[in-house]
């Protein structure tokens, strides 16, 4: 059984048809990227999958549970990392993780928190208030919070929007580590290279429908075969930036 099944999903806000019949399936243990421009409806899909919004029409199942009829079971199966790092400025990083562990009724919330701080390279920052964190650190904490309780399915809504290149790499590494552990990840992004780097399958959402859905190799075949051209390889500005700044880490 696939981790996520969506058939004929429709959602309108007032007069605006955002989703006009979305179909998609996400296999267990895979990383699925939902690609689309701003306002394509990516966040709407994530909100429906995570029981924050109700669909107008369509069958939506997460971990085998119907999002409308079995919302409580869906919530036990998932974790949502929303578009903006959902953190509390006044709490420390460690307190965030302890809070999540308590809300998931786990034993030894302190130990769980320390392990995750370690895994996400936040041990030294753990006792500091989040107000002092950089964007990348907030995002890492945000993702660490999502992992508590080992939910089998994780939603990441534009996890790298607004991050600097280093923060982006940090998040990418976190997502890759998740995939290695067998967690199903559905991530939305507007960056093509992000989908390319992380995803087993990529779907493109456009005009309220999934217009393409396949592996990167399949997507490439949609275009005429590559022509061989010889181009002098200039380092990109990102290469330069990371070479200079990244070396210091």
């Amino acid at each position: 059984m696939p981790a996520i099944q969506v058939h004929g999903l429709r959602k309108a806000f007032a007069e605006l048809d955002v989703l006009r019949g979305v179909d998609l399936e996400v296999a267990r243990g895979s990383v699925f990227a939902l690609l689309g421009s701003n306002g394509a409806g990516k966040t709407t899909i994530v909100k429906i999958l995570s029981t924050l919004l109700k669909a107008d029409e369509g069958a939506v199942r997460v971990n085998g549970f119907d999002v409308a009829a079995q919302a409580a079971d869906v919530r036990k199966s998932i974790s949502l990392t929303g578009q903006f790092a959902a953190v509390d400025e006044i709490l420390t990083g460690r307190e965030h993780l302890v809070l999540m562990a308590r809300l998931r009724h786990l034993r030894e919330p302190g130990r769980i928190a320390d392990e995750l701080l370690e895994r996400f390279g936040l041990t030294r920052a753990g006792a500091r208030r989040v107000a002092t964190y950089s964007g990348g650190m907030r995002r890492r904490l945000d993702i660490a919070m999502s992992l508590i309780g080992d939910p089998p399915i994780i939603f990441l809504d534009e996890p790298t929007t607004g991050l600097d290149p280093q923060g982006r790499l940090e998040v990418w590494q976190a997502v890759k580590a998740l995939a290695e552990r067998g967690t199903t990840v559905l991530l939305t992004t507007q960056y093509l290279d992000e989908a390319e780097q992380l995803a087993d399958r990529i779907a493109i959402l456009h005009d309220g429908r999934i217009v393409v859905n396949g592996t990167l190799a399949e997507l490439r075949q949609l275009l005429p075969p590559a022509e061989v051209e010889y181009v002098e390889k200039q380092p990109t500005l990102e290469d330069v930036f990371l070479a200079i700044v990244g070396a210091a880490r």
Binding site: K47, S50, T51, R75, S79, L80, G82, D88, L103
Partner: peptide, 13 residues
């Protein structure tokens, strides 16, 4: 507005 609300609402609490 900070997203914490949505995070709590998507959890089994």
């Amino acid at each position: 507005t900070g997203g914490l609300f949505e995070r709590f609402q998507s959890m089994p609490i």
